[in-house]
Nucleic acid binder design. Structure first.
Lengths: 279, 279
DNA sequence: GAGTGGTCTAGACCACTTC
DNA sequence: AAGTGGTCTAGACCACTCC
């Protein structure tokens, strides 16, 4: 706990324990940050470095969704830092919904499989609270492989001509068609995905992606618009042509902000609304 | 730092320092929480209690928006807890956007007045990044006082017949009308609000509410729908009647989740979209 | 009882801002 | 140089879960 020790910690940050030992030159890290460093970040708190290491283990699949990660004490020992520093790193990952803490049990890799109310990402709420029976139904209209259209390729960071899986489906609530989804997935990541697999699977679609294809959705960006129903959509959602619909274009991202799903949804908003909270 | 001291802290939590000393019986708080407590919360971490006290000072106006609050060390002394405990309380308030920390300067009461990009709550984004000139214009159509319609009264937790201020306005971007807003405010809180005051004020409307009426918007809940433009709206937004518009009903809340504004917006989404992030 | 995360403290040092 | 928030550590105890 002397000054010496403190500095030793500081200068050996990058060499800190990690499963595949990183032998990068220590000199790459500024000694104390005291001197006027050149441009750039030039400094990263210890807990951020620990956070990045944990993130790497998550990404590499060292701990699978739903599993417990090592206890804070174990992680502290592994990374040779105090428990408090690990705690702060884990706190941030938990705040980002990548980890879930459960007092007395441990810290777990977040999963879409047993999400509390099923649909973590679906913001559509019924105007009238639904009578207990959450009678939702998924109707898969289509699931096929094709070369990505230009706009889809661009959104998913694919090369023009790369294969994608396209899924079309309708969600029904209380017996009424409410959502029409058109979904594109990179073919490379979703080999073997078929309409049957989709139909058979119980639970959220993102749970299937996670358990069957190892693709974990972390966050998503949505663009909302109001549009008029064309003939096809009008039929699918059983509304007159020209009915205003809520258009929701969602780009889902996995670790490292890599796009892995583009989804274009059209929502009927006569008996439902899209809920959002600003803060 | 003996056990004795620890317990002393615990049992005197509620009596902890606060400007108007609270003389509530210490016995009201469970001693250690060890015994099987009855139903209810029955336990609140120290930092949550400190957080509540800071919140109370914010609500009472002890520190005004934009001002610095006492340093962590001062707060720790005032509340007779460690700096770390104050820090955790402040951390949470900062995460909720009620406080803003600035390294080396202090912790400040958050404000809408000098918000970074002006519109913290407006999620409408242009399809094409706007050429530097953020040429937005506000056109106030109306500002009058009337008795609250039933639905407005219900949303704002007012009694039927209470007075409200109704404001109608159109927002223009790049010379084009994009947003039609219909806004209701409790008359009791906004005495003296006139169309002139609104027109004169530069900066976000929530900034004016804050500095002129002491009403600070903390968070808001929105319900989005797609609707068709009726004749009046069509004229105001210069679109054909029946054009799909994004309907955004916003309920803004202040401290203690008290509703203080109901806003019904209709957005043209032909050149803009409503951006949302899911995580 | 053992193990986990959750709270609380105390003290050191660092980085940033202001004087 | 002084004051502020930011990081890091070490150790204590508490609450919860499981055996």
């Amino acid at each position: 706990m002397t000054d010496r020790t403190k500095i030793a910690f500081k200068t050996s940050r990058h060499a800190v324990v990690t499963p595949p030992p990183n032998n990068a030159a220590d000199a790459a890290l500024p000694a104390g940050g005291a001197s006027a460093s050149a441009s750039g970040p030039s400094f990263s708190p210890l807990y951020q470095q620990i956070k990045a290491l944990i993130l790497r283990s998550l990404q590499s699949g060292e701990w699978r969704p739903g599993e417990a990660i090592p206890s804070e004490i174990e992680l502290a020992a592994r990374f040779k830092v105090s428990q408090g520093t690990v705690r702060k790193a884990v706190d941030e990952l938990a705040a980002e919904n990548l980890l879930t803490r459960r007092q007395g049990k441990g810290t777990f890799v977040a999963t879409h499989a047993e999400e509390q109310v099923q649909y973590r990402f679906l913001r559509l709420m019924p105007d009238q609270p639904v009578a207990e029976s959450t009678d939702s139904r998924r109707e898969f209209l289509d699931c096929r492989r094709l070369r990505a259209p230009a706009d889809v390729a661009r959104a998913l960071h694919l090369k023009p001509g790369d294969m994608v899986v396209e899924i079309r489906r309708v969600l029904h609530f209380s017996g009424c068609p409410v959502v029409f989804d058109d979904i594109w997935l990179p073919g490379r990541l979703f080999k073997g995905l078929t309409a049957d697999r989709l139909s058979e699977y119980r639970g959220p679609m993102y749970g299937l992606f996670e358990s069957e294809f190892g693709v974990r959705m972390i966050r998503a960006e949505e663009k909302l618009r109001a549009v008029a129903a064309d003939a096809d959509i009008a039929q699918a959602l059983q509304v007159p042509q020209g009915t205003p619909l809520l258009s929701v274009e969602r780009l889902s991202l996995t670790y490292g902000d890599q796009p892995v799903e583009l989804r274009r949804g059209l929502y009927r908003t006569d008996r439902h609304y899209y809920r959002n909270e600003l803060s």
